[in-house]
Computed example of a mutant assay.
Amino acid sequence: MKDRHWRTRYRVGAYEVWGTSLDSEERRRNAPHAEPADFGLYLDERWHGEEDARTSHFVYWPTLEAPVERALLIARIKEAAAALRDGATVEVACFGGHGRTGTVLCCLDVILRGTTAREALERIRREYCRYAVGSAGLENFLLNDTGDLVTPEPLRAGEGR
């Protein structure tokens, strides 16, 4: 059985994000007694009614392929990054805590640390979980379809590109 995660801490620059598996035995034991995250991003419909955050956000993403609600997912990832910058605790969770969760953790790395998607992918597998972003569909989405995660800084008066 692959590793399961209960609020596995993952450092993204100066920030810390929790990665969680719904089916983690440790989560089942500790969730009722733990302080909830401020912001939760849940990527599996089985989390409805199980969420562990004060403010829960759901994205319908039923498989380990590219997300169905891509625009909503990108918006929620940007909101999670903003919440981290504002000092909130953030939990990202799917069923196993590897594929979809790992993909979002990589996206946060791209936004908050300015890394490339490839660098984020290598790092997540080294520092969070070797099973992270564990399908060709997720890897393809991360490497080829997340270019709009980082919004260019707006021009100031008198500046040109």
Rank of each mutant, 00 (worst) to 15 (best):
K2F: 09
H5F: 09
W6R: 13
T8R: 12
T8E: 08
R9D: 07
Y10E: 08
Y10R: 00
Y10Q: 07
Y10M: 03
V12S: 02
G13V: 06
Y15C: 05
Y15W: 13
Y15H: 15
E16V: 14
W18K: 07
T20L: 00
T20Q: 01
S21Q: 02
S21W: 01
S24L: 04
E25V: 10
N30W: 14
N30R: 14
A31D: 12
E35G: 03
E35M: 11
E35S: 08
L41S: 03
Y42V: 01
D44F: 00
E45Q: 10
R46V: 04
R46E: 13
W47T: 06
G49K: 02
E50C: 11
E50V: 05
E50W: 11
D52E: 12
A53S: 15
R54T: 09
R54I: 07
T55E: 15
S56W: 08
H57E: 10
H57A: 10
F58P: 01
V59L: 08
Y60Q: 08
Y60V: 11
T63W: 08
T63I: 00
L64Q: 12
A66Q: 01
R70I: 01
A71H: 11
L72F: 00
R76G: 06
R76V: 06
I77C: 00
I77R: 00
I77G: 00
K78F: 02
E79L: 15
A80S: 06
A80K: 05
A82P: 00
L84P: 03
R85F: 00
R85A: 14
D86A: 14
D86E: 14
G87V: 08
A88D: 13
V90Q: 09
V92R: 04
V92E: 13
V92H: 05
A93E: 04
C94M: 02
G97Q: 05
G97H: 02
G99T: 07
G99Y: 00
R100N: 11
G102R: 03
G102D: 15
T103C: 15
C106H: 04
C107F: 06
D109L: 07
V110Y: 01
I111N: 12
L112K: 05
L112W: 07
G114T: 07
T115L: 04
T115I: 01
A117V: 02
A117G: 02
A117P: 10
E119T: 12
A120F: 04
R123M: 02
R123A: 13
I124H: 06
I124Y: 05
R125F: 04
R125S: 08
E127V: 12
Y128C: 05
C129H: 15
V133M: 08
G134I: 01
S135F: 10
S135E: 14
A136I: 14
A136H: 10
G137T: 11
L138A: 12
L138C: 10
E139P: 01
N140H: 11
N140Y: 15
N140R: 14
F141K: 04
D145G: 03
D145L: 07
T146P: 03
T146N: 01
T146Q: 02
D148G: 09
V150N: 08
V150D: 07
T151F: 00
T151M: 12
P152C: 15
L155G: 13
R156S: 13
A157I: 12
G158T: 09
G158Q: 09
E159F: 06
E159R: 10
G160R: 12
G160N: 10
R161N: 11
R161Y: 09
R161V: 13
